[in-house]
Simulated assay, not measured.
Amino acid sequence: MSSPALPLPPTPSVTTPKIVEVLKPEVKTLERVLVDFVSAGAATLAIAPVVICLIDRSVIENASGRSKSVLASVGTSLKTLFTSPHKFIFSKPFALIYLTYCGTYLSANTVDTISSIRNGTDIKTVTAGPEKFATTSIVNMSLGLVKDRSFARMFGTGSPRPVPAPTFVLFAARDALTIFSSFNVPPLLAPYMPQDMLMKPESWAQFLAPASCQIFSTPLHLLGLDLYNRGNVSWKERCKMIKTNYFPSAMARMCRILPAFGFGGVTNAAVRRSLLETLECR
């Protein structure tokens, strides 16, 4: 006689959990490009292009002998600024300064945006590789050489004439040093900067690197100007001119570079990061 079949235990009901897909809002490329433009424009306004225009002119006039000193040239320019501010702000030198730095910041921002899209990284990622150095150098050199050519012809000695090729080469080398120290060195230098409440390490690096670079780039700048201003002069005379004008020119260029790529670089990075964070939250 077979034993009665035991009842099977009830099959437990299995409830399949609903999979909730959380989609991150798409950050459109056009909006990110707009952020790059706004950040570059804001940074250029923040660097006080009036100050840079004054200093650039004073260094050229001092090196050419049109002014007895850097401070004397700055004083003359300040007098013009206060008596006819509209003429100064809407002048060709001011426009050249704005175009040069806005274009440089925009190129750096664009490289970061393209890199993050291509690699699928955080949209706020800041690069420090050869791609950024090459792009920003080409843009800055191109715009900077146009600016320097115009400044040398406007504020140099003698009648306007073609700028010699060696001067272009020296200016290009000067700009390459400045770009490298302004966009590539700060991210590498930041980990070694002090940690305090006054400024972030990134900000310390952004101020220190380009300012220190002027120690090496100022002789290139002065030699390039001298080759334009004095065609047939011995190298001994050129070295004497560089030695005489080195300290005031280096100090002036440091004061110029701090707003240009120090404070301007910090402003560009801060504005861009803030706007991109806003896009992420949308």
Rank of each mutant, 00 (worst) to 15 (best):
P4V: 03
V14C: 05
V20A: 11
V20S: 08
L23Y: 00
E26N: 01
T29E: 06
V33K: 05
L34D: 07
A40T: 02
A40K: 01
G41S: 08
L45H: 03
A48F: 10
P49C: 13
P49M: 13
L54G: 14
D56H: 02
S58I: 03
S58H: 04
V59Q: 02
I60K: 04
I60H: 07
G65M: 09
R66I: 06
K68W: 05
S69N: 08
L71K: 01
A72W: 10
S77F: 11
K79I: 01
T80I: 12
A95Q: 08
L96I: 10
Y101M: 03
Y105Q: 02
S107G: 14
T113N: 13
I123K: 01
T125L: 09
E131I: 07
K132L: 15
F133N: 03
S137A: 15
I138L: 15
M141G: 10
L145D: 05
V146F: 11
D148K: 11
R149C: 03
R153Q: 15
G158A: 00
P162K: 04
V163C: 08
T167L: 12
V169K: 08
L170Q: 04
A176P: 00
L177S: 03
S181K: 03
S181F: 12
V185K: 10
L188H: 14
M193Q: 09
P194I: 09
Q195R: 15
Q195C: 10
M197T: 14
L198N: 09
E202G: 09
S203F: 15
S203R: 13
W204K: 06
P210R: 07
S212H: 00
Q214T: 14
L220Q: 02
L223F: 15
L225Q: 08
D226F: 00
Y228L: 05
G231F: 07
W235H: 13
E237M: 11
K240V: 08
M241T: 13
I242R: 07
N245S: 11
P248H: 09
S249T: 15
M251E: 07
R253P: 08
R256N: 12
I257N: 12
I257V: 10
P259M: 00
A260W: 01
A260P: 07
T267Q: 10
N268L: 07
R272H: 13
L275Y: 13
L275T: 04
E277S: 14
E277P: 09
